[in-house]
């Protein structure tokens, strides 16, 4: 993408065009901050964290923000969903930068900052909320991505409460021998899916899971290519949220 734009600019007569090929992933991997757009801070499905101390948030804060001042961040880390995009702000750059690095080191993939911190938000005309804060609970629900099945629907299927559904476990037979398999589920390891396609009915909806969702995603792409009505579960099945009946080995 960067190369096609660079080529286009060159054709338009720009003389000093360069391409940062490694792009945004390389930038944030170095620990350099990225900034969320104000519309995203306002409406995006994010966890917005206000790192300021004391009374400051009561006097004015960005709507939807959760107050976790920097010294509390470490102990509250486990309350932040790992797959949530997190946006941070404070009133000083050192604090947000430290928090950004801490979250990155902890394994959070999508972390961003508010442009110009709280002051920048106010200066750019962003909405502000004032008054007492009643809850510091993080309420964040992931929006299902393309091809994903919800845990509720998946659970219904393995319990046998969703007719015309064919559930595939894409893990290896060794993993199943050790950990068991969900009820109403057929084991077809990911690598065998292309040659065992004839075992998968075309007239039923198909759900696929594996241990974390990575292989299920790949199996999903393989089946969608072959015109199946298919969805996959993006969830670590050892997560208590899964709560599906298992036939133990």
């Amino acid at each position: 993408m960067s190369t096609s734009n660079a080529g286009l600019a060159k054709k338009l007569g720009y003389t000093n065009v360069r391409a940062f090929l490694a792009g945004e992933p390389a930038w944030s991997e170095e620990g350099y901050p990225v900034y969320a757009s104000n519309t995203f801070v306002d409406k995006g499905n994010i966890v917005l964290i206000d790192l300021r101390k004391g009374e400051a948030p009561v006097n004015g804060r960005i709507p939807r923000s959760v107050q976790i001042h920097y010294e509390q961040l470490e102990e509250r880390m486990d309350d932040i969903p790992r797959n949530a995009p997190v946006t941070l702000y404070s009133d000083n750059m050192t604090e947000v930068t430290d928090a950004y690095e801490d979250l990155k080191a902890e394994g959070f993939k999508t972390v961003s900052l508010v442009n110009g911190n709280y002051q920048g938000w106010v200066a750019s005309g962003g909405k502000v909320e004032t008054g007492p804060i009643f809850s510091n609970e993080i309420k964040w629900v992931r929006i299902l991505g393309k091809g994903e099945v919800s845990v509720e629907e998946f659970r219904k299927a393995v319990k046998g409460d969703l007719p015309d559904t064919f559930v595939i476990d894409a893990r290896t037979p060794e993993e199943i021998k050790e950990l068991g398999i969900f009820t109403n589920t057929v084991n077809i390891p990911l690598d065998e899916i292309p040659k065992r396609m004839n075992e998968i009915p075309k007239d039923k909806r198909v759900f696929i899971h594996c241990s974390t969702g990575a292989r299920a995603d790949l199996a999903y792409r393989e089946l969608i290519e072959n015109d199946y009505d298919v969805k996959f579960l993006l969830l670590n099945i050892s997560d208590p949220e899964c709560d599906c009946p298992i036939i133990m080995p």
């Binding site: 660079a6 600019a9 720009y14 000093n16 360069r18 792009g23």
Partner: peptide, 15 residues
């Protein structure tokens, strides 16, 4: 794009 065609112009994307 900027008016000045000699100004440094850097493009990036997602890798």
């Amino acid at each position: 794009l900027p008016e000045d065609k000699d100004k440094l112009l850097v493009f990036y994307c997602g890798g």
